[in-house]
Amino acid sequence: MGILQPLRRLSDSVNQVAIVICVGCVLTMLGISFTAFIYKLVTGSTLSWTYSLARLFLPWIGFLSMTISLRYGEHVAMTLLVRSLPRVMVYVAAGLCLAVIGLFALMLTWYGWNYFSTATQVYLVSAQISIPSKFTAIVVPISGVMMLLHLVHGFALLEHFIDEQDAIGELIDTTDGERRS
């Protein structure tokens, strides 16, 4: 158990960085779109590169959001079905679920690295702006590694192991603690 705690802290730190990157990508996309809007209002013509440049951030948002939702147990789960099973079967189902998530993460990492390393295309956003496809391809293996790292949390990743009353109590305690500060 000595190695699990540092790995869990690393997982949480990586998750916080992913959240910041996702917010940055969304804000960048909004900034690009807002720039295009203002330019259209002022000049009456459009900037051809804004849509192409803004959509390059979508893979980053999508893949990193997937890892963030996994960390918080917000992925697709059949909680009602699982909770109706006997307790032993809940653990079997949870183990299978974690194994499938792990296999998916390994495949993302393995095939994603191959995808990244062979990506040679260049996105021509405009005559002056060209972006290598490696910019968007690298997020695939990164998200696979992040998902593998999040697996150190084990059953805590699965929604059907969360006691609603404890979660509500935790939220109330957190909110009360913030008011007192």
Rank of each mutant, 00 (worst) to 15 (best):
S11K: 08
V14R: 10
A137F: 05
S126K: 11
I21K: 10
V92A: 14
A93Y: 09
P86N: 11
V88H: 14
A99D: 05
S11V: 03
G169H: 09
F63R: 00
F155L: 11
G44H: 03
D176R: 05
T118C: 01
R8I: 15
A167P: 00
L70G: 02
L171Q: 08
E170S: 12
A137K: 03
I3P: 00
H75D: 04
R180G: 00
H75V: 14
V140Q: 13
W110M: 10
S48F: 00
M78P: 00
M146G: 01
I131A: 05
P59V: 06
H160D: 04
R87M: 07
G154R: 04
I101C: 02
C22L: 13
T43V: 04
Q16Y: 10
I38M: 11
R9G: 05
F104K: 09
K134Q: 15
I138P: 00
M146C: 10
Q128L: 02
A156H: 12
L4K: 14
D176T: 05
E159A: 12
I129E: 04
Q165W: 01
L106R: 03
V17C: 08
E178W: 04
L41W: 11
R180S: 10
H75M: 14
L70T: 08
W49V: 00
L96Y: 06
T120V: 09
E178K: 11
T174K: 11
S13W: 14
F135H: 04
L151R: 02
F116C: 06
V26H: 01
L7A: 15
P132N: 13
F57T: 01
Q165R: 10
I138S: 09
I142H: 09
G31T: 07
L10T: 12
L96C: 13
V23I: 15
P132G: 13
L151M: 01
